[in-house]
Design a protein around this nucleic acid. Sequence first.
DNA 1: ATGCCGTGGAAACCACGA
Length: 258
Amino acid sequence: MKIATYNVNGVNGRLPVLLRWLHESAPDIVCLQELKAPQEKFPLEAINDAGYEAIWHGQKSWNGVAILSKKGQIAEVRRALPGDPDDVHSRYIEARINGLLIGCLYLPNGNPAPGPKFDYKLNWFKRLIQHGQELLALKEPVILTGDFNVIPTEFDVYKPERWVDDALFRPETRSAFQDLMAQGWGDALRKLYPNEQIYTFWDYFRNAYGRNAGLRIDHFLLSPQLDNRLQSAGVDRHVRGWEKTSDHAPVWITLADQ
DNA sequence: ATGCCGTGGAAACCACGA
């Protein structure tokens, strides 16, 4: 079973790219972030025509997350991260599909830091850590995936010294990510490629993709129940080179059937 | 060092992104 995550940066603006990639890569389950579309503007018909069922939580202009599946029913569990009923951003959706519990997330960017946006990021992170603990306590096969907006280590950025004061790389951010990982999650891509340089995002500016000036900020976190089912993982980095493409590339894993 | 590009929405610019 192939599962992917992709920050599309506008699901309607990128629809041709999304459909081309779905056809080429043929993942069974897809987590999307940054739909940038209100609930009623999600392109369900085109997604259905591509062979996928979908659940989504849209929002006007910004954020927005979705889970697509062409394998098994999507049983939605929640469409918000617990812990703050006043949080109106659409950044989390969770569902059971085919024996997997999948959390699709778009963690706040947090810039500029310090400031209220960074505070929001850290508060969101606290809620994610709390929820992560609850997910692991289920002792089920769980996947937490999406755009974490976290550069986990110096090895995950082309020029770390330029990013030390950035909300994606600040000590508080890395520390929060370490706290989450310490619960027992496995970083799927790092587990399979401990020494490879892996990027999932390249800025639109300064020919970042051409220079491979990238960041690794889209992650697949697996619960221990999935440790021995992880078969392969990768980044479809060539998609970042397409016309009218997102600044992120799709990331995927494959799991052995149980 | 920098939003230099790109999106959506409102309004011919702005907020936001990483």
